[in-house]
Structure formats: structure tokens, C-alpha cells
Design a protein around this nucleic acid. Structure first.
Length: 254
DNA sequence: ATGTCACCTGGTAGGTGA
């Protein structure tokens, strides 16, 4: 079984690239972030024509998430139960016996801002809910744009980024506590090339210089860990004309 | 040394968020 995540940074703009990627990789399920579409604008027909069912949860201008799957997802939940959130950030469903939680974590802007505080509250809300969700669904995958670089090896210039957004101790502590629920970063189950990033700023020729962060993650529950066969970042779409600033990440389960 | 993109409102650019 193959599972994927991609922050597409506007599904309207990136739909042709998404359809190409689905055709090339044929994931059984895929989650998208930053669709930036109200629900009435979701390209359901095009995605169904590509062989996928879809569940989506969007809003105007910002955020927005979707869950695509070859078989229809069941028990679909939008956002975090128990955490009131005006923004469309999470979509969850069960496909092929796996509880799939696709999330667009808040960016957080900078430590000390209201947006950072919201990020902390959101992370707490996610953890409180996931604890219950894991108890009910031992086979669970949490994947998406985490907006947190787990470790200094996930940052192209850890000295310059020390204490900056995506790299603060507070964010990393929240990520550690998520992992403490019984999840593991699938990418790090394998030897990986150094300087593996999933996001490169559009500015400063960052992709050309390979100056990025690994902030798009796939966490698998302990019950699934032994069945993980591979986890890789696909940099190719970042080389396209009009690329997303994020690359897709692909997980293969036995 | 510098270097972006996508969205909105309401323009015949400027602001916001990332």
C-alpha cells in the first residue's frame, strides 16, 4: 500500500501536476494541503476521472485539505474534534484499514506572535485528540505539512535557523510529544541522503542552492512500523515549471 | 549582492501569508 502527502500551494494552479503525479505513482491514498479552495470549487470530476474518490475541506484563500483514495474513505472527520478552529487544516478517514490523518499544521509566523501561540494551542489540541484516536485505531498514519523541522539535520543552516520558526524548542517539544503517543517518523527508519528537504522557499534561489527544510512528515503508529517498506521525498515536481514550494512524500507499506 | 508565489480587494497596485 502506498500513501502520500503533498502541500500543493493552490490546487487550482497545481491540478495538472497532481494528476501527473497520481498517474505516475498510483498511491492508494494521498492527502493534500493548502488547496486554497472553497468546497464548491473542488475539482471532484477531474480527480474521480483519475481513479480516486475524494473528501475535501476547504475555505476561501488560505489553508484547505483533501483526502484522495482509490477506495472510498469511511468515518471521515474534518478538523480536530474538541478543538474549535476557524481554519480548515485536518481531514481524517479510514481507507484499506488504515486511519489516515492528513494535516496542515499552522505556520506560526514567529515566536512571540499570536500566530505562534495559536500553533501551540493547535498542537496541544491535536495531541489530545490523537491520543484517543490511536486508542481506537491502532493502525494510524499522521501525515502532512507539519511546519516543524524535527532535528537540525532537517535544516540546511541550523545555526541561522536556531530558535526561528519551524525550529524552536517549543515546536520540537510538541513534535516529540506527538511521537510519544506511539508514532515514528517513517523517513528516519531508513538511511537517507544528507540534505534531504521537502520544502524550499520560493525566494533566494533556494531550490537551486538546495537550501530547504524537511517539514513534510509521515508518522506511522507503532502497529504499522514493521510494515513500512520505504519512505521518500520526490524532488522531481519541484523542478517543474510553476512548482509548489513543497515536494510530495511517499510511503510504502507491506 | 540580488533573486517568489498565490491570493484578495478593488485596481489600473498594494496588502497578506507563506
Amino acid at each position: 500500500m502506498k500513501l502520500a502527502t503533498w502541500n500543493v500551494n493552490s490546487l487550482s494552479v497545481r491540478l495538472p501536476q497532481l494528476l501527473d503525479w497520481l498517474a505516475a505513482h498510483q498511491p492508494d491514498a494521498m492527502v493534500l494541503q493548502e488547496t486554497k479552495l472553497t468546497d464548491d470549487k473542488f475539482p471532484q470530476a477531474e480527480i474521480e476521472a483519475a481513479g480516486y474518490r475524494a473528501e475535501w475541506f476547504g475555505q476561501k484563500t488560505y489553508n484547505g485539505v483533501a483526502l484522495l483514495s482509490k477506495t472510498e474513505a469511511s468515518d471521515v472527520v474534518r478538523n480536530i474534534p474538541g478543538f474549535t478552529d476557524p481554519l480548515a487544516r485536518v481531514i481524517t478517514g479510514t481507507a484499506d484499514g488504515i486511519r489516515i490523518v492528513g494535516a496542515y499544521f499552522p505556520n506560526g509566523q514567529a515566536p512571540g506572535t499570536d500566530k505562534f501561540e495559536y500553533k501551540m494551542q493547535w498542537l496541544r489540541g491535536l495531541r489530545d485528540w490523537l491520543r484517543e484516536e490511536l486508542a481506537q485505531h491502532p493502525k494510524l498514519v499522521l501525515l502532512g505539512d507539519f511546519n516543524i523541522a524535527p532535528d537540525d539535520r532537517d535544516v540546511f543552516d541550523p545555526v541561522a535557523w536556531a530558535g526561528q520558526i519551524h525550529c524552536t524548542d517549543e515546536e520540537r517539544d510538541h513534535l516529540r510529544k506527538l511521537l510519544g503517543l506511539g508514532l515514528v517518523d517513517a523517513f528516519r527508519l531508513f538511511e537517507q541522503p544528507p540534505k534531504s528537504w521537502s520544502w524550499w522557499d520560493y525566494r533566494n534561489l533556494a531550490f537551486r542552492k538546495n537550501q530547504g527544510l524537511r517539514i513534510d512528515l509521515i508518522l506511522v503508529s507503532d502497529a504499522l512500523k514493521a510494515s513500512v517498506q520505504s519512505c521518500n521525498i520526490d524532488k522531481l515536481p519541484r523542478k517543474n515549471a510553476r512548482p509548489s514550494d513543497h515536494a510530495p512524500v511517499l510511503l510504502t507499506l507491506a
